[in-house]
Structures are given as C-alpha cells and as structure tokens.
Simulated scan of single mutants.
Amino acid sequence: MSLITPTRHKGSQKGGARRAENNRIYAHPLPLVFSAPEPHSKFGHVLGLFGPNTRLENPHCEGIFDPATRSVWVTNEKDSMILWRRGFFGKGNLSRSEPSWLARQINARKAAGKYMTSEEIREKRRAERKQFKMDRAAAIAKAAAEAEAAFAEGREAGPAFIPSGATWKPQPSSELSLPSEPPEDQSMDVAEELEPLEDVEHLQLTLQEAFFLIWNLDCLTVLDPHTHEPMSLREIWQTFQDVHCITPGLPVYAHRFDNPFLVNYAAYHYYRSLGWVVKGGIKFCVDLLLYKRGPVFHHAEFAIVVIPVYEDPADKESSPFNLPNADTFSWSWLSTINRVNAQVQKTLILTYVTIPAQSRVSADLLSSPACLAHYSVRDVVLRRFIPARMRD
C-alpha cells in the first residue's frame, strides 16, 4: 500500500465569508469527539495528550437497513446532521449532498410574495431565451421578405435590424411577472393557513460507509427492516454481503472472497484510514472521489477507479459475481475517463484491490471482518499526456 501525497493543489478552494463558519461547523473529522477540560500542558490539546478527565463522546446514531437500495437510512434529523457534519458520511436522498431539503422548503415559503426563488428565476430565463429565438427568427423572416420585395421592385432594400443577445430586451408580455407582496393582514392569514412542514428527507449511507461507522467507530446502530430490532455485527456482516447475491443462501455464493461488498469496502477503508473523505464518484464516471477535508471546503482532488485483481485466476472463472473493471478494459475507455476527470481538474487513480486466493486462505475467515486483513490495495496515479504542454 502507498500513501498518496498530493503534489499540487488543483481543487479550487471554496472561500468567502462562510469559511470561518464552515471551520466551526465542520471542526470534527469523525463522529467520535474527544473532550478534555484540563490538558496536561498548553501543548496537550495540540498533541492529543489529555489528562485523566478526557472523555469520549459517542453520538450512538441509529439507522435502518434498506435492502432495496442497498443502503442504510438515517431518519433522525439530529443523527443525520452529526454524521454529515462530522466526516461527511452519506447524502440526503432529496439533496445533492447535505440533507437540506427542509431548509430549502422553508426558504421557499419565506420567499413567496417577496422575491423570486432560484427555480422561478430559472423558468424566467428559459422563457426569455425562447422569446429571443422567436423574435430573432421573425426579424430574419421579415428582412428576407423585405429584400425579395425590394429586388422585385428594382429598389434598394433598407437596413434590416436583427436582434442579438446584447441588444435584445424582453417584452413585458414575455417576462414572468414578479410575485406581488400581499397586504400585511393577508400575508398573516396565508401564514396561518400553511401547514407545518414535515421533514421527509433522510440521510442515505452506502453499505461501506455504514460498516465503517459500525465496525471501526462503533457509533451507528442498524435496525432490521422487518423486526426493527438492532442487528448484531455478525448479522450485519452477512446481510451486507447477501444483498449482492441474486438468490442468497445458494452454495455458489458462499465462501467467496470476491463478494462486491468486500472488494468495495477494502478500497473505502483504505482511503478512509489515511484520512481522506471518501464520496461516490458516479458523476465523473469513477467509483470514488477523495476530498482533503470535505465538499464544503475543497473540490475533490482525486478520482478513484476500483479494479479488482484475482490472486488466483481460477477464482475468477468460477465466480458468480460480475465485478466491474475485472476484465481488461480498452485504452479508449481509459483515455475517455482520464480526459473527463482532467477537464474538472481531478487526478485519476487506478486502485487495484487484490482478492486473496481461496486455495490459500481458509474460507472460515469470511465469517468475520478478520478476512479483510488478507486483501491488499495498491494505487497507480494516471496523468494525461498533453504534447503541446509537456515538451519540456
């Protein structure tokens, strides 16, 4: 395994007035918080050398396993904010990342009758662009008809005015009227009639994120979707593997080191243990994205493609799983992925997860997370060669 040390800071930092506030809100990198009222010395807090009064604050969050989406749902708002703000675990199912659906709905209510929301501004701009195209087409048709008439009459056609994006202005009929502010007494009546908003959003954890919180930090309890009783670590370990089986319980799926959950978790655990914030990378055609501190501070600097490698090729032939990237991929595919991520200033990393051979490692180890010690992870940084820029 190798430790990735970035040599350049390509991700643009999200600065501005909110930087100090973000540093305060997202001060803790993990849900577990160590508090020490009286450190041994003035350097104790910096070095982590706390006195006997040091306390470990464990939030003990709770979620429920959802087999349909292969994820764990955290429905409690307080637990959701803790997991998001302390390590950026999961994402809101109704949001792009942070679970902010309720806050957006409240802001939309406050905006009603006073100013346009972002959705209303977007629709207004779309209507203006549509009207501009119609006016431009009408002006071109009118100029062409005028030129034909002038040619038939043997005279010189007058100058034609074709609107452009810089000169065209929307007509009052094409503009979306701004919402008028209702009288004070009427607005109070409307506010009283509005029903209180119910937060229907939940934080959705991937199986890798959930197991990292359960096994390594012991700060998440997962409930069974049928009995709503807490699941034991052994039940979670087996259940997270069974979701990738078409028919759980068949012998063909048993005692397999190439279970997709195990392969993906090995890569996730590897980068999380090195201090990176790991998020999904489907938006950029990769498996994972690595952030230094989190999405609110910097853009992701590295894009990860997980490539499973069989220590024993015979295990691949007998495998019931169709692991992505297990087969040799073409150079055109690799060049495409590399260029996509180079355009958004991300360095592509090929992460090879070596699956232990079943002939070498006892299948009994699969009954517990101890088997993860037999996986190895190595990464290769891939950079796009640009002849015009790299001649020196």
Rank of each mutant, 00 (worst) to 15 (best):
I304S: 08
M231C: 15
Q13E: 08
G90T: 11
V278S: 14
F50Y: 11
W73I: 05
I4A: 02
E301S: 14
F385M: 01
G87P: 06
F261Y: 08
A20N: 04
S97C: 03
E98P: 02
W215R: 15
L350G: 02
E62P: 01
R125T: 10
I64E: 07
L366H: 10
T227M: 06
T351E: 14
N338L: 15
K110V: 14
H228A: 11
V72F: 02
E195F: 06
P59A: 09
S319R: 07
C61Q: 05
S97D: 12
A27S: 11
A149Q: 10
S368I: 02
P170I: 14
Q241L: 06
P196L: 12
Q345I: 02
A267M: 02
F240N: 00
P369T: 08
D79L: 04
S41H: 10
V344L: 04
C245E: 15
I121N: 14
P37K: 13
S367F: 08
N58G: 02
A373T: 09
A166L: 09
Q343D: 15
E38I: 10
A373P: 00
G158M: 12
Y115V: 11
P37G: 08
A326Y: 01
R8W: 04
Y26Q: 04
F257H: 04
V344H: 05
S319Q: 09
E192P: 00
Q105N: 11
L350R: 09
P29C: 06
D379R: 01
V377H: 05
W84Y: 15
K142R: 14
P172H: 07
C61I: 07
L194N: 01
E198M: 03
W331F: 10
K133Q: 10
F240Y: 08
N22I: 03
Y115L: 10
A150N: 05
G280T: 11
A166S: 12
E193T: 04
E119G: 04
R19E: 13
V306C: 01
D379Y: 00
I386D: 13
F261V: 01
P31F: 13
E193I: 05
T354Y: 00
T69R: 05
H45K: 14
P324C: 08
E317I: 05
I304K: 08
P179G: 05
T347N: 06
T206M: 02
R360G: 04
Y253G: 04
L323C: 04
V277G: 07
S80I: 02
I25T: 13
G48F: 12
E301G: 15
A145W: 02
R109D: 12
R24N: 08
T54L: 10
F89E: 01
N22V: 03
G294K: 03
F211D: 01
L49P: 00
K283D: 12
P196H: 10
E153K: 12
E193C: 01
I304A: 10
T354R: 05
R18K: 10
K42N: 00
E38L: 11
N76Q: 08
E146Q: 11
L83G: 03
G63Q: 09
S180L: 07
G275S: 13
Q345L: 11
L47V: 12
